[in-house]
């Protein structure tokens, strides 16, 4: 429980320092809303032009879009410290973090509670509700539980990816952009039902990076849709656990990577 107290101290300090530059924060959040909102406008326009994508309509696609954006945004809000790992290594700041008598994970999670990511969260939420509204969705306790469980899973998955990215940056910083295919690319992929992609991509985002498990399968349950790919109807109740397991693996990888850390500071 003590670590939760420490994390809250960290996070509240981070919030205070961001609020010192209030105008800059507002502009950043607004910029985010514009970018992510316009990306959805792109999806909307394509549905407007084409009508459907392999049998999926705009309402359904919006639910996929909203759900993955919310999970990604929540993970980005707390993993700012991991995202900055490359910088912490280059400046030697990671030495100081290692010296403190708390786990690196706790400290990095608290390092930057990134408020400007609320832009993505807001847009994601709005798109989700827009989709549900288009579909005249009937809420039920079970479906809402599945939705929250799916968001937990996708948040865990993206946190895990950020930690792997941070771990990799102990070896290389320059090639790190490739990891964007998994974080931002994962988000981009998850905006559409995974069934529209070609087989190798589907395999990759189901079994290697369990994106389908935290987004596609549970959303099928929320929408009362059968899987055109023919998976068992109950898959979505269980599958978000894959995100949590992925996070567990990523934590182990981060600890492992830290053993190879050689300070660059002087």
């Amino acid at each position: 429980m003590d670590s939760i107290y420490v994390w809250r101290q960290y996070a509240s300090q981070s919030l205070k320092s961001q609020m010192e530059y209030r105008r800059s924060f507002l502009l950043q959040a607004l910029g985010q809303i514009l970018i992510i909102g316009s990306e959805f406008a792109g999806v909307w326009s394509l549905f407007h032009r084409f009508g459907n994508i392999k049998g999926w309509n705009l309402g359904e696609a919006s639910v996929f879009y909203g759900m993955i954006s919310i999970g990604f945004a929540l993970s980005q809000m707390i993993t700012g410290g991991f995202e900055k790992a490359g910088q912490l290594i280059r400046t030697g700041e990671l030495d100081r973090i290692l010296l403190r008598p708390r786990s690196t994970v706790l400290q990095l999670l608290g390092l930057e509670f990134s408020l400007r990511r609320t832009g993505r969260l807001l847009v994601g939420g709005a798109v989700l509700f827009y989709g549900l509204w288009l579909l005249r969705w009937e809420p039920s306790f079970l479906k809402i539980t599945v939705a929250l469980w799916a968001i937990t899973g996708s948040m865990a998955l993206f946190c895990g990816l950020m930690m792997i990215q941070a771990g990799v940056s102990i070896w290389t910083i320059e090639s790190l952009e490739l990891m964007n295919t998994l974080t931002y690319g994962g988000q981009e992929t998850g905006r559409y039902p995974v069934s529209i992609y070609s087989a190798p991509f589907r395999f990759f985002f189901t079994y290697i990076i369990p994106l389908a498990a935290v987004n596609y399968y549970p959303v099928l349950l929320i929408l009362d849709k059968a899987d055109p790919g023919g998976s068992a109807a109950l898959t979505g109740y269980v599958s978000p656990i894959a995100g949590v397991l992925f996070l567990g693996g990523a934590l182990m990888f981060w600890r492992f990577a830290l053993r190879f850390y050689r300070s660059a500071g002087g």
Binding site: F50, I53, E188, Y192
Partner: peptide, 18 residues
């Protein structure tokens, strides 16, 4: 990212004759 975008457009073009 190119592949993802190409697959999305492929899907749309296969689904509509408009």
């Amino acid at each position: 990212f190119g592949f993802i975008k190409v697959m999305i457009f492929t899907g749309f073009f296969q689904s509509s004759v408009r």
